[in-house]
Nucleic acid binder design. Structure first.
Lengths: 205, 205
DNA sequence: CTCCAATGTTTCCACTGGAAATATAGATAC
DNA sequence: GTATCTATATTTCCAGTGGAAACATTGGAG
């Protein structure tokens, strides 16, 4: 019955690990990447700035865990709205990719910042790998690479990934400004122009 | 004849502005983006850490100037090795883009980090604009966008830029690892497979 | 020659991430 | 039940960062 004891925060948080990751994503979405300091994350949870060390070792470890969670959500975005046809899955994945980047720009940037994340971390590796697998799996059924090269499959994967990733990055860095918030992949991949738009809740600010 | 006065560094540097930018690029190429602190740059020139403020206002101002210089060199890379045909210019530009990113990975990253650069700076705007103009000018003669949409030209530009930028970024973040240092654009754009390779001095480490 | 404005330096400050010693509490052994 | 052990969290430090403010130096304009 220690619930009765007035709002006295227990010494041990209980699930600090998850709370810290959630706090990190929250800060990213509300205050941006610049505000994402170790002390800020800790304070957001109501804990001292050295507490994270027990769970993540260092700031980089914590950021890596946040990025891993980002890749999981990223994967969800790409699966959203896909029907059971190759074309539908492709559109959903490419638009989901861009939509995620527009919805969580700072988290997205963190996920692709080698200075901030440790890409050899097993958890991050797994999450990022699964995210890539979604695109790679879809690229299989495409005819983008009409050559009969032995690695035609890998070429198609890379091309698809490069297009969508580059487009997302350019928008984030403001370089594609003036083109408006073109979130519909059909706007840059002409072949898809005939397809219905499958926008979902999130929109760029 | 104050040259006779023993190696006594003059109080006024003379060309601090250029020296600081050069020092910044030097640090980026040798020690990476993490080592690029205001104090490190100043020390590299042999000057106090507050001296840059007179010329650039703040660290961000200095980083912006460094990025602008980066865009100028970036443009040079894209022009290198181009003969007087649309196809040749296209290959040269796309390979130059990727080759620059591989040669100056940290500088390239800085150039596309909105957290570090002020994209509303006129000098940076001009340099980045000229860099984009090279790709855009080339995209005009392409048939990538076969649709007869009114903005077909802009679509071709964006597509070309996205592919090459995304490909460069993915390699930098290590995500395209396992595919090897594929610097030849022909490896991902099948249409170009028949063209001669136009590699130049720089190679990825 | 004198003064002024531009350019650098010194000295401070708040903030950051991390190290080390300490406190607290949940779990296990007896 | 109680003692101990270990995981977890705190406190207190430290070197490093970028920036503000006051001061020093210098070249040039009047």
């Amino acid at each position: 019955m220690q619930d009765q004891t007035t709002p006295k925060r227990p010494y041990h948080h209980g699930s600090l690990k998850e709370a810290l990751v959630a706090a990190g994503i929250d800060i990213l979405d509300t205050r941006g990447l610049e505000a994402l300091s170790l002390r800020a994350i800790a304070a957001h949870v109501g804990v001292s700035h050295t507490a994270p060390k027990n769970h993540f070792g260092s700031l980089k470890g914590l950021l890596t865990a946040i990025a891993a969670e980002g890749f999981r959500r990223h994967t969800e975005f790409m699966k959203f709205g896909a029907e059971d046809s190759p074309k539908s899955r492709q559109i959903a994945a490419m638009q989901g990719y861009i939509r995620f980047a527009a919805t969580h720009p700072h988290l997205f940037r963190l996920m692709f910042s080698p200075a901030l994340c440790a890409y050899d971390d097993p958890e991050l590796k797994a999450a990022a790998g699964e995210s890539y697998a979604v695109l790679a799996g879809i690229a299989k059924g495409l005819d983008w690479d009409k050559s009969s090269a032995p690695d035609a499959g890998r070429r198609a994967e890379l091309l698809m990934w490069s297009v969508v990733h580059g487009y997302a990055m350019l928008h984030l860095s403001g370089s594609a400004q003036g083109t408006g918030p073109v979130l519909n992949i059909a706007d840059i991949i002409p072949d898809f122009g005939y397809l219905p738009q499958t926008h979902s809740p999130a929109t760029v600010t």
